[in-house]
Design a protein around this nucleic acid. Structure first.
Length: 556
RNA sequence: UGGGGCGUGGCCAAGUGGUUAAGGCAACGGGUUUUGAUCCCGUCACUCGGAGGUUCGAAUCCUCCCGCCCCAGCCA
């Protein structure tokens, strides 16, 4: 990367710090709380933190901010680790945990009490709220604010030992109850939770608050630039207060940037958890979810996520990025790397009257229209084929411009194969077309048809005697409102009822029997698809549509 | 009506006093094409939330005003 031209304001700051010798080695960190799965918004943060470390030849830690055992679990830890790996980043050394530092943090809390800068407060949660004041009125000092140091020390020890009921006391910093910044009104440092922690078990009955933990964790790890999202800007003075008032080994600095917002979805772990817990989706990795695991299951390559993140601005503006921008990078990646295949979603039988009954041929077909390096495959062809119902019409009045598919009495090209003519349509009692009788135009493989034969277009197909029955999941946006849950609507009210359409009875070309999870294909004229990892089996696979092909036509 | 942050085309943005205000997405024209895909070409802000002011010169500096976001968890 070109160091002479920093890419964003944080890179500019780092660049200058390096120049001014304020730091010699850049240390960043990605600090997720293991209380849910990572989403696309986290990807931006991951790319930023790991990317900055890479750009400036520094290091980036992966640290779990596990200070609230009530909401956290090992399942989330594992999922997060997998997601970061999927994106291709490597953290420095071992995975870190805030819980590794609980002992050190406790020691510093004791030191703060001894210095007269913290006290055990016995106000109830409700009283604490009342004493805190409001946005426009100052708060009032807690009656416990000036209790003797020794008393606070004893009480804190009792809190730690599990001798005090939850909610009956907390440890607070003694700062300023009249501060205009609410975070400085004697913030809570420790609260009692008689809850076992996924890593420390029952060792602790008190757990540090975010504010009392985060900056010190950074300092312990030697983090130089602690990057977080905008909503933490108000916490910075407190972050700095701890750094200044504690004997920490280094002095990290906090910088805030605007988190990623995408329209027609939510990037909030809390809201995503709601969708999972209330059963609106099939788990955190439901392909409709903006989680990294959901995108992965849907068939989105990590490289597309990376390219998307690189396209985003790191700034302090709080905007909403259009989902179309993500879609663009997904299509761009998939178009270039994906091999082509054919799959008929709504099969309509086509019998070729001028093709010998049992004759089967294999047609060599390129796997990619513009990349010979991706090789070719053998497509079985025979007397009976399937094309998509939507690709045939009996309406001979349809203009060539409006309907570039098969029309009764006319010609169409079968992709990679012959030009055929629809001679007749067979109907059932209710008048629906059940089969087409057609004929091939000889010698049209790789050749333009003779004068006077003008195919209306090119359609995809599969051979009936050698294809794979499968189902296809067509996904649409999860929400039908650009800002789900905004205003007076509830999140659930804005869910798109048609976000999933299951198409049964599809027919895929034979080569797709070898489809593997994690590999996305382009089903020509339909979009990009990959094997679902949860449903289907070898004999009857289920494919998820990653994304449709761009379509400049259907909208007119 | 306290504090913090932000306002550049439909969306995301670059721009840090001196060419006709980058770029990407979207959109819209046209060309190529055995995917209505890809690809290619072209169009798309006399103007930077508004009003004043400083200056030879302002999106960039100053003043006032307007709008949006965040903060009153013993969540992070």
């Amino acid at each position: 990367m070109d160091k002479s031209k920093p890419t964003n304001f944080i890179a500019q700051i780092i660049s200058k710090d390096l120049q001014d010798k304020l730091t010699e080695k850049v240390v960043t960190r990605f600090p997720p709380e293991p209380n849910g799965y990572l989403h696309i918004g986290h990807a931006k943060s991951i790319c930023l933190n790991f990317g900055l470390a890479r750009e400036f030849d520094g290091i980036c830690n992966l640290r779990f901010d596990d200070t609230n055992p009530e909401k956290e679990s090992e399942e989330f830890v594992e999922a997060i680790i997998e997601d970061v790996r999927w994106l291709g980043f490597e953290w420095h050394g071992d995975v870190r945990y805030a819980s590794d530092y609980f002992g050190q943090l406790y020691g510093w809390a004791v030191g703060l009490i001894e210095a007269g800068k913290a006290y055990v407060c016995e106000l109830s949660a409700e009283q604490t709220r009342e004493f805190r004041g409001t946005l426009t009125e100052p708060g009032r000092d807690s009656p416990y604010r000036d209790r003797p140091v020794t008393e606070s020390l004893t009480l804190l020890e009792q809190m730690r030992a599990g001798e005090v009921a939850e909610g009956s006391m907390v440890l607070r910093a003694k700062i300023d109850m009249a501060a205009p910044n609410m975070n400085m009104r004697d913030p809570v440092l420790y609260r009692i939770k008689h809850v076992s922690h996924h890593r420390t078990g029952d060792n602790w009955n008190i757990y540090p608050s975010y504010d009392f933990a985060h900056g010190q964790e950074d300092a312990i790890e030697g983090v130089t630039h602690s990057i977080c999202t905008l909503e933490f800007a108000d916490h910075r003075p407190l972050y700095e207060w701890f750094i200044e008032n504690l004997p920490v080994p280094s002095k990290p600095r906090q910088y805030e940037f605007g988190r990623l917002n995408l329209n027609y979805t939510v990037t909030s772990k809390r809201k995503l958890k709601q969708l999972v817990d209330q059963g609106y989706v099939d788990g955190w990795d439901d392909p409709r979810m903006p989680t990294l695991s959901g995108l992965r299951r849907r068939g989105v390559p990590s490289t597309a996520v990376l390219a998307f993140c690189d396209s985003l601005a790191v700034a302090k503006t709080d905007g909403i990025v259009d989902m179309a921008q993500l879609d663009h990078f997904i299509r761009q990646d998939l178009n270039e790397h994906t091999t082509r295949a054919m799959c008929v979603l709504k099969p309509l039988k086509v019998t070729l009257s001028n093709w010998p009954d049992a004759e089967e041929v294999l047609l060599a077909t390129p796997n990619h229209p513009n990349r010979t390096d991706l090789g070719e495959r053998e497509l079985p062809f025979g007397q009976v084929l399937y094309i998509d119902c939507a690709d045939f019409s009996e309406d001979t009045g349809l203009s060539r411009k409006k309907f570039k598919r098969l029309v009764l009495g006319e010609y169409v090209r079968l992709r990679g194969a012959y030009v055929i003519k629809a001679d007749a349509a067979i109907h059932n009692e209710s008048g629906e077309v059940t089969e087409i009788l057609a004929s091939i135009v000889p010698n049209t493989i790789g050749e333009t048809p003779p004068e006077g034969i003008k195919p209306r277009g090119v359609i995809h197909w599969v051979a009936a005697h050698n294809c794979i029955p499968c189902d296809v999941n067509i996904y649409d946006r999860l929400f039908n409102k650009a800002a789900p849950g905004k205003g007076d609507s509830k999140l659930a009210d804005d869910i798109n009822p048609d976000s999933l359409t299951v198409v049964n009875g599809c027919k895929a070309e034979a080569s797709l029997a070898a489809a593997k999870p994690g590999i996305t294909y382009q089903f020509e004229r339909e979009g990009y698809f990959c094997l679902d990892t949860r449903n289907g089996d070898a004999g009857h696979p289920v494919f998820n549509r990653t994304i449709a092909l761009r379509d400049n036509w259907s909208a007119n």
